[in-house]
Structure formats: C-alpha cells, structure tokens
C-alpha cells in the first residue's frame, strides 16, 4: 500500500522559546528548527511498514515555508521515497493544513495517512482528525500500536484511562503517540542518497485550496512567571512548611 506521511517543521523541542516584546508572537529568528517529534514517529512507523513489506511507497508531505524542505530531506534520509512541499506562509491553521493535505490525498490516493498527534508549537492536536473528516476516512488517533489485518487496520490508542483498540476500514488516518516507536537516526550515506530523491513543490493555488482561517491570534504573552521558592533542610521542615505556611496538607 501507499503510505502518506505529513510532517511539520517546528522549533526544536529543547529550545526554551521567548515571546516577542510586541506580543505579536514567539521569537523564532535564529532559533534551532527541527522535525516535530510526533512527525518523526510517523515517518518511522511508515518506514517500518515498508520494511515489513506492508507499505510499497512512502510519500512525505509538508505544508509550509520553503525552509521545510530541510525536514522533508530528513524524512527522505530516514526512508521515505519522495517528498511534496505545499509551499505556503507560516502560521497556518490546522484546518488550512488539513485542506491542503486533503488535496494531496485526492491526488496520491494513499491507503494510509500517518500524522503526528500534535505539533509542539501550536499544541493544537487537530490536523489528523480534520483530515479524516474531510476525506471521510476513519481515524485512529494517539496510536501506540498499528497493525494491518487484511483490509482493516487495528490501532491501539492511548486514552485517559489506559488503552483502547479499534478496527478501521482502509484507507484510514492515523496519528502517532510518543510510544508508537523509537525513531531511528539518519545515517550519512542515507543523507547523501536523500539529496537525489524527488522533492516536488506545489502551491495551494495549484491544489485549489484556500488557506483562510476563522481564527485570529490577537496577542501572545509570556505565562505568569513562577519564581523559585526556598530549599528546606529536612523532611521535618518540609512537613512543617506544608502544614503551616502553604497549608496544603
């Protein structure tokens, strides 16, 4: 089967972001960028499906600025066969991205689309579910295990109380949770080979998609700062403080 994987370029997960002084957003100038960790897991899962002989081709797609080509090349180095960049401005809403992905799905006709469960910048956790709605496919969100069983897909999902397994008709949409797999590193020879793999660039216009959003960010602020408290010397002092000063026990 053909597998489509959507990836996003985001600020590296170790970076402590700073809010801009004019409250217009987060300062991303000269900040290290990387593939969203959940998207790495999505790529890894697709590559594993190919290694098992389940997936025949892996197409990786990103919707965003030209610079997202870097992350697409990373995905190619990890084992994807070809890449598509839908070139658009940054700060797209999840619905806009889902619409762009829907157009790519219509064109590519994959049997399975894998996305991360959320991007660590916007923390929306929406795109996979929205793509499932737009395509009319079943969704297996927050997946910690994915198994192809004939014409069905068994997905074990992480839910609040534990785990849940659902059987989905194919084609289907899956979003990854952190425990689905441990992504591999790209080796240098694979990084070199990835440079020769095809990377196609399309515009939203060519796909016939409007990226307009019904949401507008009015301002972005730093959260209320939490200052360091005190260090206590002993368990007895801690208990005393919790009882008499903080009054929480």
């Amino acid at each position: 089967m053909k597998v489509l994987v959507a990836i996003k370029r985001v600020v590296d997960y170790n970076v402590k972001v700073r809010v801009k002084a004019d409250n217009s957003g987060v300062d991303l100038a000269n900040v290290k960028m990387a593939m969203n960790p959940f998207c790495e897991i999505a790529v890894e899962e697709a590559v594993r499906l190919k290694e098992k002989g389940v997936a025949s081709e892996i197409v990786v797609v990103s919707v965003g600025q030209t610079s997202a080509q870097e992350q697409l090349r990373t995905a190619l180095a990890l084992g994807a066969d070809r890449a598509i960049l839908v070139e658009a401005a940054d700060e797209l809403s999840s619905l806009a991205v889902a619409k762009a992905l829907k157009a790519v799905v219509d064109k590519e006709q994959p049997q399975l689309v894998i996305l991360g469960k959320q991007a660590i910048d916007s923390d929306n956790n929406q795109t996979g579910q929205m793509l499932a709605a737009l395509t009319g496919y079943a969704q297996g969100t927050f997946a910690s295990k994915v198994e192809v069983a004939g014409d069905k897909l068994n997905v074990t999902r992480e839910i609040d109380g534990g785990l849940q397994t659902v059987a989905l008709n194919l084609p289907a949409i899956v979003t990854t949770d952190l425990r689905l797999n441990e992504p591999r590193y790209a080796s240098l020879p694979n990084i070199m080979k990835a440079k020769k793999k095809p990377l196609e660039t399309v515009t939203p216009d060519a796909l016939g998609v409007s990226l307009a959003s019904t949401n507008k960010t009015l301002k972005v602020e730093a959260p209320a700062a939490r200052s360091a408290g005190i260090k206590v010397k002993s368990v007895a002092e801690l208990v005393e403080k919790l009882k008499n000063e903080a009054k929480v026990i």
């Binding site: 809403s93 999840s94 619905l95 889902a98 923390d123 929306n124 956790n125 929406q126 795109t127 996979g128 579910q129 929205m130 793509l131 499932a132 709605a133 737009l134 969704q139 969100t141 927050f142 999902r157 992480e158 839910i159 609040d160 959003s213 019904t214 949401n215």
Partner: peptide, 22 residues
C-alpha cells in the same frame, strides 16, 4: 480529554471552521 480531542476537530472540519484547543 482524549475523547474530546479525538472528536471535536472532526466536528470542526465537518462544519468547515477552525477549532480552538484547550
């Protein structure tokens, strides 16, 4: 919750509107 997060974006897309999370 995991249920709400699973369901509501699908609802929003069916209504053709953006969702606001959390």
């Amino acid at each position: 919750t995991s249920n709400g997060k699973n369901l509501l974006p699908r609802v929003a897309a069916l209504l053709d509107v953006d969702q606001i999370s959390e």
